[in-house]
Each structure stands twice: as C-alpha cells, then as structure tokens.
C-alpha cells in the first residue's frame, strides 16, 4: 500500500476479482439502501435478520445440489418470507412479537445445518457463506446478482407508494383498503431477494450491516423518504467499498464483513451523537417511535 489513493485503486483494479468485488457491492448497495429504508421504517429488523439467516440454508442447499447459489437462495428466502407472514399472529398488534420469525428461522437454520452435514465439503465453504466471500465473485455471479437486484428494485418501485402509506400509518391505510398484510409479506419476499444477493458480498450473518445500519443512520439525518433512501444507498455503497478496500490490504485478515459493520456502526453512533443538535425533533426518527 502506497498511501496514494489513486495509485492504490489503480493497483487494486488491475485484479479482475477486485473489479467484480466493487461491482457486486455496488449492485448490492443499490438494492440494500432502498429496502433498508423500509425495514427500519417498519421496524422489521428482526425479520430482516432472520431472512438473512435463512439465506445460509439456501446457499448450502445450492452447494449440496450443485446448482447456482441464487437458485437455492431465492426459493428458500421467499418460502421463509411466506412462512413468517403466515405464522405471524394477528393478535399481537402492529409490532411483531418475533415468535413467528423465530419459529421459521430456527427451523430453516436447523435444515441448513442438516444440509451442511450432508455436504462433503470443507468448513471453509460454510464460513464463506456465513461471513461472505466478496473477493471471489465470478463474472457469472455478477450477472445473476445484477438480475436479481434489478428484479427486487422493480418490485419495490411497484409497491413503493402503498408500502410507504402502510408503513407510516397502518390503520388509516387499512381503512382505505390497502392490503397491509399482503404488502408486508410481499415486502419480506423482496427483502429475501436483496438478502440473496448481499450474501455473496458480506455473508448471511452480516447483511444487516448493509441493509439496516445505513438506513437507520440516514433516518437519523433526514425525515424525507426520498432523501433518506438516497442517503442510505450512498452510505451502504461507501461502507461496502471502503470495507473492501481495507480488506484488500488487511490480508490475511480480509474480513470484509467486519470492516463494513464497523464503519457502518461507527457512522450510526456518530449520527446519533450529533442528531438532535439544533434540529427540531423528527417524528419518523427511529428512536421516536414507541415500540
């Protein structure tokens, strides 16, 4: 490393795998930013977390069957989203009690463990699913990541307006005939798409860092949906790229996930520490909504 940014980047981008890493992360951030905005707004962090864990099962199933990762990730992710939607108890009110989520994801991960036992490969394969393998993304992976990312974004654009309405004021939305339950399940399924991609970058266990943390930071800074979405996307991209940059030079400790989570969490703490300084209270700010 030369401490000359331009030179370092030039050196780094000579490697094809680094080009793929930067591109794959860019796609992931573009999808994670907007979806993350809604995850935080709807307080569905636990569901996002559980879906990301379900991704482990999908990825190991794909390994076991010898099919492309995405072909395992998407069905398992969407099935988990549907399962959570179906088992969610209507009596518990707007804020999920987390039981349906816990039920689906412990079962899903247990299955993932079974697949892992059946798979004759190495523990390293499991680690790369759990904690990410962004430095080993192939051209084919990049293509599928882009297609799935585009599909998730198109889906989000289609349900964006009613989803925003249902997120901000569920009771009024319901009264106006917005199918809030259906929207919630569809949203979780879109999230499963985003997770399926982000897994290749940061791994199942650390997707949070790209989906939730940038969005939570953005919502501390601005209340306006469009701005918050743009900001959370930009932050996700920034953290992911800087994380890859650090990981490239931190060999043998190239744990992209750790650098990404640390950057993202640092930014969140900074935003929390400085928010509320000389600003009027923001009604949609994460901390102001009572659970």
């Amino acid at each position: 490393m030369s401490w000359n940014l331009a030179l370092d980047l030039q050196q780094m981008l000579q490697f094809h795998f680094m080009q793929n890493a930067f591109l794959a992360t860019a796609v992931t951030a573009l999808v994670a930013g907007p979806l993350g905005y809604f995850v935080v707004l709807r307080a569905q962090t636990f569901a996002a977390h559980a879906l990301s864990h379900a991704g482990f099962t999908g990825a190991v199933a794909a390994l076991l069957l010898g099919i492309p990762p995405l072909a395992g990730l998407l069905p398992v992710g969407v099935a988990s989203a549907l399962g959570m939607g179906m088992l969610e108890d209507r009596r518990t009110g707007r804020q999920s009690d987390g039981i349906a989520i816990a039920a689906v994801f412990t079962f899903g991960l247990g299955l993932g463990l079974l697949f892992l036992t059946l798979y004759p490969g190495q523990a390293e394969d499991a680690y790369s699913i759990l904690f990410g393998g962004v430095l080993s993304i192939s051209d084919g992976d990049l293509e599928t990541i882009s297609v799935a990312g585009l599909a998730a974004l198109v889906g989000l654009v289609l349900i964006g307006r009613p989803l925003l309405f249902a997120s901000l004021d569920p009771d009024v939305a319901l009264a106006r005939g917005v199918p809030t339950r259906l929207l919630s399940t569809v949203f979780l399924a879109l999230l499963a798409f985003a997770v399926a991609e982000a897994i290749q970058v940061v791994g199942t266990l650390l997707i949070f860092a790209l989906v939730v943390t940038p969005a939570a930071t953005a919502q501390l800074v601005t209340a306006r949906p469009a701005r918050a979405i743009a900001l959370s996307t930009a932050l996700a991209l920034l953290f992911a790229w800087v994380g890859i940059f650090i990981a490239f030079y931190a060999d043998p400790y190239s744990v992209v996930g750790f650098y990404v989570t640390t950057l993202a969490t640092g930014a969140y703490l900074l935003a929390r520490a400085t928010s509320g300084l000389g600003r009027r209270p923001n009604p949609f700010r994460a901390g102001n909504r009572s659970p």
Binding site: L130, L206, V255, G257, T265, Y268, A286, P291
Partner: peptide
C-alpha cells in the same frame, strides 16, 4: 428503555457478529 427496541439492537448485533467473524478468521489462520 427496554432492550426490545429493534433498530439499535440490530445494529449492535451486526457489529458483534462482524467482530466474531474477525476473531474466527484470526483464530483459524
């Protein structure tokens, strides 16, 4: 407040896992 509130909890959790990933890598290498 009660620690059930989900955004700060989720963010902390992600970071703790990231740290776990780092420790795991250091350990296995």
């Amino acid at each position: 407040t009660t620690p059930s509130y989900d955004v700060p909890l989720g963010i902390t959790l992600a970071w703790v896992l990231g740290l776990g990933a780092l420790l795991l890598t250091i350990y296995t290498s």
